[in-house]
């Protein structure tokens, strides 16, 4: 009797360590593999400078993908994020160009708030159309994608919208090019956004509700969870994340055009899926998403540094990555 009890506890312990969820680990393993591959291709690759550059450049997709993690976890999908980036960025620059506030610092603060509100409203619109309007999120956001993109083209009259005031440009530049304690600002922002998102998703009531709604909306409803509110808020979070990405994007080039952010929705969704979040909802992996965004950027970087694959194939490679990621995910699900 005694021995059998021992047997059992030993079993459980052995299991615990084997139990580390493969799906959670897979993206990080892939990342490490890529780093090794990159180092083999080109020794410059593994340098801190190059990696920091890659991370900085992944910031837009990474931050947008964090928002997408919420939307996807709750069982929805947002295809409008790329167009939303262009739209919010245009609005923000036009606002700054309008010169309603003379003091540059004050103007910038107002513009930041303006962009955040604009992004949230765009997200809210997506949310309300899908929940209150009861339209499939795929169709609803396909529609708003056209609307946001079209409005941007109209605002820019088909050309570019450029930030005019040099004083404003000057004080805004560090938001992308500056660094805090030696760490580039975009990387700091990624980390901050991810930490907050992870906290919300894993440690708050709202996060639980998101996962519940995404796994089974009926169970959520029978548990007294306001399903539509939870879904709508996820879309607003997505809009907020788009706005944060815009805040980093505008100082980088100081301008935007009708082609800004094209196909970013696909990259964001790829990052989320590569990171191990299930596309059918019900499980969100915030850190995995960041890892996914980084992998996408790294692949591009490796292709650029190597001479044997044309960088024009980047799109094709990214497409392959999403398919492979899905295959890996499925085989891991089967095993467990």
């Amino acid at each position: 009797m005694d021995t059998s009890v021992n047997e059992e506890t030993r079993d459980v312990r052995r299991r615990n360590w084997r139990d580390i969820d493969l799906r959670a680990v897979a993206p990080f393993a892939a990342l490490i593999l890529l780093l090794i591959l990159g180092a083999l291709v080109n020794p410059n690759f593994i340098g801190l400078n190059n990696l920091a550059n890659v991370a900085t450049r992944s910031a837009f997709i990474a931050i947008i993908a964090i928002g997408a993690t919420f939307v996807i976890s709750s069982g929805d999908l947002d295809l409008s994020v790329g167009a939303m980036v262009a739209f919010v960025a245009s609005l923000m620059i036009l606002f700054m160009n309008s010169g309603v506030i003379a003091d540059p610092a004050l103007m910038l603060t107002a513009a930041v708030l303006f962009a955040v509100v604009a992004g949230s409203l765009c997200g809210l619109a997506n949310g309300l159309i899908t929940t209150v309007g009861r339209i499939e999120p795929f169709i609803a956001t396909l529609g708003t994608m056209g609307i946001y993109r079209g409005l941007t083209t109209w605002l820019s009259q088909g050309g570019a919208i450029t930030l005019k005031d040099p004083a404003l440009q000057e004080i805004y530049r560090p938001a992308y090019f500056g660094s805090i304690l030696g760490v580039p600002v975009p990387i700091v922002v990624i980390l901050a956004v991810t930490c907050i998102a992870a906290f919300i998703l894993y440690r708050t009531r709202y996060g639980r509700h998101v996962v519940a709604v995404g796994s089974n909306a009926d169970v959520a409803r029978y548990s007294g969870i306001p399903v539509n509110r939870v879904r709508t808020i996820a879309f607003v979070i997505q809009g907020l994340c788009v706005a944060i990405a815009v805040l980093l994007y505008v100082p980088r080039l100081g301008s935007t055009s009708a082609t800004t952010g094209i196909l970013w929705e696909l990259q964001a969704i790829t990052a989320v899926v590569v990171g191990g979040t299930a596309l059918k909802g019900g499980a969100g992996r915030v850190w995995g998403t960041i890892c996914g965004a980084f992998i996408l950027e790294l692949v591009g970087n490796i292709m650029l540094l190597s001479n044997f694959i044309s960088e024009y194939l980047i799109g094709a490679i990214q497409g392959t990555i999403i398919i492979v990621a899905m295959l890996v995910q499925r085989s891991l699900v089967r095993k467990s």
Partner: peptide
């Protein structure tokens, strides 16, 4: 289909 989240653990 209405009571439990089949993919979540007991606590959740």
């Amino acid at each position: 289909s209405k009571g439990l989240l089949l993919n979540s653990r007991m606590t959740a």
